[in-house]
Simulated scan of single mutants.
Amino acid sequence: MAAPSRKQMLRFLSQLGAFILTRFGFWNCFSMLMLFAERADSKRKPDIHVPYLYVDMGAAVLCASFMSFGVKRRWFAMAAAIQVALSTYASYIGEQVHYGDWLRVRMYSRALAIIGGFLVLASGAGEVYRQKPRSRSLQSTGQVFLGVYLICMVYSLQHSKEDRQAYLNHIIGGEITLMLLEVLFGVLALAFLSGYYIRLAAQILATVLPLVILLIDGNLGYWHDTRKVEFWNQMKLIGHNIGIFGAVLILATDG
């Protein structure tokens, strides 16, 4: 049996990235429901006022459903980007739940990156049989959002003792390795912001992100027990990073 060619492998990875990103809305809604159920025991409020919360989750599921079936995927990817933007804004101005500054950076930077991922998808990147030319302006805008996310990662590693300790617990070389990671994320951010070497930068980030998800985000004992991040909030953040990984896979193979 012949081994798959490089072109077939790239196509598979691009489809995998699109599969992950288009299903993001389902996991995000599920984790939000579980988070608000977790808060109900302590009589804490959801991030968004309840009447708007149902509309927000309905829109997210609708967009995810149409994208998953490939129906007008560009349109619904754009709609999903708008939905995440409105949801994030409503959560920010609602101020129903108090978060520490370091956690706000983690939450809102990932939301920005998801918006960027949906803009990349809406541009036509990752389509197997592209019937219309991709929108380079939409893709560039999405890449900028991903670059901002990486800048926020650098900021967190420099100024957040919570994030620094999470990395120091799992890397060899201590502060020196941490500094090298900051430089790496900074260089990747510049690539996404400038639009140069996008495919190479995305390939590097696609290699690093699974390790971050597994070792850093996946350290539930650290985040939940030590840093008091709600369990389902951390699971929601893991889902965000997996969705970002899907977007990066698309750029790494069809950027």
Rank of each mutant, 00 (worst) to 15 (best):
R110Q: 14
M107H: 08
Y149H: 15
S135F: 00
S123T: 04
A90Y: 12
Q131D: 12
S109C: 08
V128G: 02
M107T: 14
Y149N: 13
R106C: 05
L121G: 04
V84C: 06
S109H: 04
L119R: 04
R136G: 04
S140T: 07
G147P: 12
V97E: 08
A125L: 07
V148P: 06
G100E: 10
Y92C: 03
V105W: 09
T141W: 02
Y89P: 01
Y129D: 08
L121I: 00
G94Y: 01
E127Y: 07
R110S: 15
V84Q: 13
L112Y: 01
F145R: 13
V128I: 13
P133A: 07
F145D: 07
V148N: 09
Y108D: 05
G117M: 14
V97G: 10
R136V: 02
L121C: 07
R136N: 09
R104L: 13
T88K: 01
A125Q: 14
L138A: 07
G94Q: 03
S87Y: 05
Y108Q: 08
A111L: 11
S140L: 03
Y92E: 03
V120T: 06
V105G: 09
F118E: 05
S123K: 00
F145N: 09
A125C: 15
I115R: 12
L138Y: 09
A90W: 11
F118C: 06
F118R: 10
Q139S: 07
L112M: 13
V120K: 02
F118I: 06
Q96S: 03
A111D: 14
V120C: 01
Y89C: 07
Y89A: 11
D101T: 12
L119E: 04
Y99H: 14
Q83Y: 05
Y108C: 09
A125F: 09
K132D: 06
V144P: 03
L150T: 02
A122V: 00
D101K: 09
V120M: 01
W102H: 04
I115L: 08
V148C: 12
S137N: 05
V144I: 14
T141I: 06
G142Q: 01
H98G: 00
R136K: 11
H98P: 00
G94F: 02
R136T: 03
A113K: 13
A113Q: 12
I114R: 14
G94P: 08
S87G: 14
Q131G: 13
V128N: 04
F118Y: 15
F145T: 11
Q83F: 04
S137P: 00
A90T: 14
T88P: 00
E127S: 12
Q131W: 10
Y149G: 12
S135V: 03
T141H: 01
V84W: 06
V144R: 15
E127D: 11
S123R: 02
Q139D: 03
T141L: 06
G100R: 12
